[in-house]
Simulated assay, not measured.
Amino acid sequence: MVSAVFHSPLDTSGAVPTTAPQPARASAPVAAAASAPAVASEPRMLKKRDFRAFWMRVLPPLAGFGLLVLVWELVAMKSTTGFPSPLATWQQALTVFSDPFYSKGPNDQGVGWNVLSSLQRVALGFGLAAAVGIPAGFAIGRFEFLSRMFNPLISLLRPVSPLAWLPIGLLVFKGANPAAIWTIFICSIWPMVINTAVGVQRVPSDYMNVAKVLNLSEWKIFTRILFPAVLPYMLTGVRLAVGTAWLVIVAAEMLTGGVGIGFWVWDEWNNLNVANIIIAIFVIGIVGLVLEFALIKLATAFTFEEVKS
């Protein structure tokens, strides 16, 4: 097979000399040496890109926090009412968080107990809202009669301020704690109802036509078609409802009293302890950020690619 392509070395008539391929062999190391720097430069370029991406992720948040601290320091320097500086607030925060779970009576407890009490109220109010709002959203989105029936009511009640519902709760439930839970319930139910209903209405009509052809029951339509398709919208409503509930509880606890992060803010204001108020603001923001991040991760895990885009 080799002789069919190359001339035999014994053939002297027009034979190609055996020394002809030698330069190609000699040039192979040169070519390899020439290509070696290009291969070696790829990790260096990747390192530079990774290093630049790292700083682009770290520097902007640090610059934002630095700007906040700078403005805060300028306000403290210009203030004539004893507004605490960032350093004084940090020192007070070390004192507050050195024992966050102390208890010296119902109106004197650590910040940890106040946060846990607020989270407990949020969990109860939000859980009741989810138990009512998600099924109601499925029903409103599934049946046109219910949609036409409840859409005007939702449009009327949804813009009402959360604190406007608090006196109704105090009148009906005769207690501050159930009134706060009621306020969370009525304010966090709307995002779940609306997003779930919109998700049901956006299910492709082909799916429902197939269900009619197969003569599926309502339970099978719900479990096999509606629930998987509506789940991303439903989780978005849940995320918005949790953010609303955490906002409402702080305002409700300021008015109802008891143990809670909102009551702690109001109590520290009565004591003219502005540093603790600023600490409470950061605590409220951090807890809300953690709740938001956890629900975003949960929603992303159950969201299809076309819904994410």
Rank of each mutant, 00 (worst) to 15 (best):
A34W: 12
L289I: 06
F282W: 11
Q109I: 10
I286A: 14
N209Q: 09
V198F: 03
K78G: 12
F6E: 04
L240H: 04
A251Y: 01
M56T: 13
S161P: 13
V198C: 03
D11S: 11
G175A: 10
I189W: 01
S85A: 10
G112V: 09
F263N: 11
K212Y: 01
K212V: 05
L156Y: 06
I181C: 03
L70H: 11
T236C: 06
S8Q: 09
Q91N: 12
A197F: 02
T95A: 08
L10N: 09
T81I: 13
V248W: 00
F263Q: 09
E292Y: 08
V30Y: 06
V71N: 06
A245G: 04
D267C: 03
I140T: 01
F293Y: 13
A211N: 00
A32G: 08
M77Y: 07
I140M: 08
L171Q: 08
L59N: 10
S27T: 03
V198Q: 09
V16T: 12
A211V: 03
N195C: 11
G260K: 02
L153F: 11
P159C: 11
L163A: 10
W269Q: 10
F185P: 00
P61D: 13
W246L: 08
V69P: 03
F304M: 14
D267S: 15
E253S: 00
A28E: 03
A53N: 13
V307I: 15
G199A: 06
I181P: 01
M149Q: 05
V203Y: 02
A40G: 12
F145M: 07
I154Q: 02
A26L: 12
A275D: 11
V210W: 01
P191T: 09
V193G: 00
E73T: 15
L240Y: 04
R158W: 02
F150W: 04
F143Y: 11
I225A: 03
F227W: 14
W269M: 12
P9F: 05
V5F: 15
L153H: 04
E306Q: 13
L124V: 15
Q201R: 13
A275F: 06
P61E: 11
G237Y: 02
E305P: 07
V283E: 05
Q92T: 12
K174A: 15
S27E: 02
A139E: 00
I221P: 02
E253N: 02
K297F: 08
V242F: 05
P178C: 05
W55S: 06
W55L: 13
I296M: 07
I296P: 00
Q109E: 11
V198P: 01
D206A: 10
E253C: 00
L156T: 07
A53R: 12
M56R: 15
M1S: 13
P228G: 07
V172W: 07
D50V: 14
V238I: 13
T300K: 14
T300N: 13
P167D: 11
E73F: 11
W264L: 13
A36R: 14
C187P: 01
L214F: 06
A164D: 10
T80F: 08
A176Y: 05
N271L: 10
P84Y: 08
P191Q: 10
S117M: 09
